[in-house]
Design a protein around this nucleic acid. Structure first.
Length: 877
RNA sequence: GCCGGGAUGGCGGAAUCGGUAGACGCAGCGGAUUCAAAAUCCGCCGCCGCAAGGUGUAAGGGUUCGAGUCCCUUUCCCGGCACCA
């Protein structure tokens, strides 16, 4: 055993041991409970960032902990390998996306191995390989045949200069990020997955997911957005529109229908198009509406604008004419592309009506706030449910009765009915990009859209392409898209769109169960491993990725591929990794971001930061606040240099100790030093244990009988108390306090060694042996390498991985006397010692008699005495 | 804008069911060791106060014998908003 802790050597040896014994390779085993522990797979962007290290460390802690608890643990790893960054890198560096991606995977895999994660690498997969995506294509054709995939027009961001579709993040202030051109909305044909067919089930099943954070379930619930309302039909006015028809709108406030004073349609609505034909001003406005991005956040915050069409529709109950407006906040893709406006009781309609001097008709009076009329400024009470007024036969009805009566009347007239509407929209999966899974469809002039037959799968993505950033590469490759129709054999055109990369990540967790299968998407092994017992990943995925995965698992279930409905039984959402930022303002107000590693901090005598200077030139820099580690803010810390300098165990320990998993983690160089220091202390204690303590162990052990000096019994009780706390914390995934408990145990062990090793060497050695073996087991999921080495060196066993988890012993925890807090009128005034089995009245008497109580009661009689068992006594006077 | 979350010493954080606020660690200060430094070890460490004591968990209010924890109002920060992953 080395007398000094040398992390590099310790970690290499431990990793070789795991490699040579194939320690983390697992197979299905019905005799053991299984534990499928999964961290979200990374996008191979180049190198690991600290967020990855955090994610995989948390997963590894859970995997190793459950293994020691007796589970058959699967922890796989793979690569979410399709996506935009590969295309951007291709444009920038002129390297094919495939080559770039595979090189990144090689590098990042080596980094993951260096961190010592307990991964079964035999199941590794990369979504950009034909072996993976062929099954995605296969499933696509099945879902298409089942009607769960269909084609319709969808709205995208179009860059007219680069002639390409842009992602929302590529639209900056309404302009293309590369070309700077004004972005337009454009309608193009796209394939959609019918996630709305599962809306009810996805919503209802949230109640059966006790292992998910409430906040995530709530976000999904709101996202799905089930609302019960009424579909209202407004018949076209023949004199202005010229042909028969109805304008359909959905409303959750049918009670306010009598207060509808106009209707608004989207710029793309057929009525808008019709009206614009003879109205240049309106056509220009509609054109303006088509500028700007499609992101909901932009639409929600932009100025609400509109213009009358001159067309009218008929109010279904009153027969009055209502003007049809075009409004930029109404979207064609949402609902029917039209809304009814009730300015008196809807804040957005109120603002719009006020701006354009449209009529406002109050029809509801709130029961909470009394007001005579809905006049400016807007008052939140206007939107409340209440008793109807100015509504003819419906006057006096309350919300639900009013909705029921109005819906019944609409139904009788054939102009509407109650219905349920979801906010959730179908999932558009077509992408006009190269680096993605080709959509397996063929377009034939005679046969229409034909799915690629199984024997022609996979549709392989060509890997040697030129990426320019203009247009879609596949659409420029006749050798890719020229093909023959599978049905009639005539020349046909292959689909050149690829799938949204969320599709790959919606089923990879099932593929891990049988990643080597070349004959099926998933085979019977999936029903051993699924569902994932513990899923770990960033909170930013709370809605989209997790909802798509829940949908996909059900779609695969309904194709007979898997038995489960829910993919993830327990979910842990990890917080971000953030760090301090520093910058200097350059001429023109631009900020030059400076890496924290290059900054020297100055502090006052209390340790407060007073200034920051660039180490290189000694000149001041501005402290910019704490932000998510990113390239743009230059505040990233490279995990590689951390591991090189301190070792994997220190990196892991710091990350686990610095914050609970679900909170954001603030980077701290000195915190890393502290973690490293602790591991050195553990090593030094282990070294002393081997050389000094272990030789003092008695031939016959006395610990079980409790025959040890009371000071050592106290030390032992402390150790078991901390262990009990640590096990509790492990259960609630609060790993930072598990580390605290481990530190307290080491403190107790070191104190016992200093105070008691000389006076009672044999008894001390027994307590130390037990305590240190507890400490190593407690730490081994977090810092596995050092614990592996010390476990062997201390002679506790040959492999800590196959050791049972430590449990506190009741005999060691027992105590005869308790210390209670004494309060007078709720203020802390002292402590009293009582026997562990003292009765409430005995405790009361002791408390009242105590010196502190006498002093602060000031001779007044007690009104009330509150005794909280094991905690405190509060005397109220 | 909408949905979700957060705020506790100089810093990261702890406080399990409403019961000692600040565990554990970092930074800082004092001391030991050292020719010196690093490393290590010992002690102190919310704020005000000589002390007794008072006060303190983003701000303001409420419930309670007792509130970081429950309720109401407000401010600021973060995540998501359907083509970043």
């Amino acid at each position: 055993m080395q007398d000094k802790y040398q992390p590099a050597a310790v970690e290499t040896a431990a990793q070789q041991h795991w490699d040579s014994t194939d320690a983390f390779r697992v197979t299905e085993d019905a005799s053991q409970p299984k534990y499928y522990c999964l961290s979200m797979f990374p996008y191979p962007s180049g190198k690991l960032h600290m967020g990855h290290v955090r994610n995989y460390t948390i997963g590894d802690v859970l995997a190793r902990y459950h293994r020691m608890r007796g589970y058959n643990v699967l922890q796989p790893m793979g690569w979410d390998a399709f996506g935009m960054p590969a295309e951007n890198a291709a444009i920038q560096n002129n390297v094919p996306p495939a080559k770039w991606t595979y090189a990144n995977i090689d590098y990042m895999k080596a980094q993951l191995k260096r961190l010592g994660f307990a991964i079964d690498w035999s199941r590794e997969l990369a979504t950009c390989t034909p072996e993976y995506y062929r099954w995605e294509q296969w499933l696509f054709t099945r879902l298409y045949e089942k009607g769960l995939i269909y084609k319709r027009l969808g709205t995208v961001n179009w860059d007219p200069v680069d002639e390409t579709v842009l992602a929302n993040e590529q639209v900056i202030d309404g302009r293309g990020w590369r070309s700077g051109a004004l972005v337009e909305k454009r309608e193009i044909p796209m394939y959609y997955m019918k996630i709305t067919a599962y809306a009810d089930e996805l919503l209802a099943a949230l109640d059966d997911l006790p292992g998910w954070p409430e906040q995530v379930k709530l976000m999904q619930k709101n996202w799905i957005g089930r609302s019960e309302g009424v579909e209202v039909h407004f018949p076209y006015d023949l004199s202005t529109i010229g042909h028969a028809g109805v304008l359909k709108v959905f409303t959750t406030r049918a009670d306010t229908l009598m207060g509808a004073t106009y209707v608004a349609v989207a710029a793309e609505h057929p009525l808008a198009t019709q009206a614009a034909a003879g109205n240049a001003e309106l056509a220009a406005f509609i054109d303006e509406c088509k500028h700007g991005g499609v992101a909901e956040a932009d639409l929600a915050t932009m100025e609400k604008k509109g213009m009358p069409t001159g067309l009218r529709v008929v109010h279904p109950l009153t027969g009055e004419y209502l003007d049809v407006w075009v409004a930029n906040y109404v979207l064609m893709g949402y609902g029917e592309g039209a809304v009814m406006a009730v300015p008196a009781h809807d804040e957005r309609d109120f603002a719009f009506a006020t701006k354009y001097s449209l009529p406002i008709a109050m029809v509801v009076r709130s029961t909470r706030d009394a007001y005579e009329d809905t006049v400016a400024p807007w008052n939140d009470a206007y939107a409340e449910h209440g008793r109807l007024v100015n509504s003819g036969k419906y006057d006096g009805l309350h919300f639900q009765d009013a909705v029921d009566a109005i819906a019944a009347d609409l139904d009788a007239k054939g102009l509407g009915a109650k219905r349920v509407q979801f906010r959730l929209r179908d999932w558009g999966i077509s992408r006009q990009r190269y680096w993605g899974c080709p959509i397996p469809m063929i377009h034939c002039a005679d046969c229409g859209d034909v799915p690629v037959p199984d024997d022609q799968l996979p549709v392989v993505l060509p890997e040697n392409v030129e990426i320019t950033g203009r247009g879609s590469p596949l659409a420029k490759m006749p050798e890719f898209y020229e093909c023959s129709c599978p049905k009639c054999g005539k020349p046909a055109k292959r689909e050149t769109d690829t799938m949204d990369t969320f599709v790959e990540s919606s089923w990879y967790f099932l593929r891990y169960a049988c990643a080597d299968s070349s004959t099926a998407m998933v085979d019977e092994r999936v029903n051993y491993w699924a569902p994932v017992d513990q899923y770990i990943g960033g909170i930013e995925h709370a809605i989209l990725h997790l909802l798509y995965s829940r949908f996909f698992t059900r779609a695969m279930r309904d194709c007979g591929l898997v038995n489960v409905s829910e993919p993830f039984t327990n979910l842990l959402t990890q917080g971000m990794v953030v760090a301090e930022t520093y910058y200097r303002e350059l001429d023109g107000g631009k900020k030059q971001w400076i890496n924290p590693a290059d900054v020297a901090i100055e502090r006052d005598e209390r340790g407060r930061i007073v200034s920051a200077k660039l180490a290189a030139d000694g000149q001041a820099v501005v402290i910019g606040g704490t932000e998510k580690m990113s390239k743009s803010k230059n505040n990233g810390v490279d995990p590689q240099s951390l591991v090189d300098q301190y070792g994997a165990d220190t990196a892991r320990l710091f990350i686990i100790f610095a914050a609970p998993p679900d909170q954001q983690l603030e980077w701290s160089d000195s915190g890393v030093e502290g973690a490293s220091r602790f591991l050195r202390r553990v090593w030094n204690y282990g070294h002393a244990f081997v050389t000094e303590t272990r030789p003092a162990l008695p031939a016959e052990r006395k610990l079980a009988s409790g025959d040890i000096p009371s000071a050592l019994a106290d030390a032992r009780r402390e150790i078991h108390t901390h262990l009990k706390q640590a096990n509790y914390d492990f259960g609630k995934h609060q790993f930072n306090t598990v580390v605290s408990a481990a530190m307290k145990i080491l403190n107790a062990l070191e104190k016992a060694q200093k105070d008691l090793a000389a006076s009672a060497p044999a008894a001390h050695a027994e307590v130390a042996e037990e305590g240190f073996s507890i400490l190593l087991r407690l730490l081994s999921p977090i810092t596995p390498h050092i614990c592996h080495a010390l476990w062997v060196d201390c002679g506790f066993g040959t492999d800590i991985l196959s050791t049972r988890w430590a449990e506190p012993l009741e005999a060691a925890l027992k105590q005869d006397e308790l210390e209670l807090v004494l309060q007078v009128n709720g203020k802390l005034r002292g402590n009293i010692k009582v026997a562990a089995d003292a009765s409430k009245s005995q405790i009361e008497a002791l408390a009242l008699a105590s010196e502190a109580a006498q002093k602060f009661m000031e001779g007044k009689p007690p009104k009330k005495v509150v005794v909280v068992a094991g905690r405190l006594v509060n005397i109220v006077v």
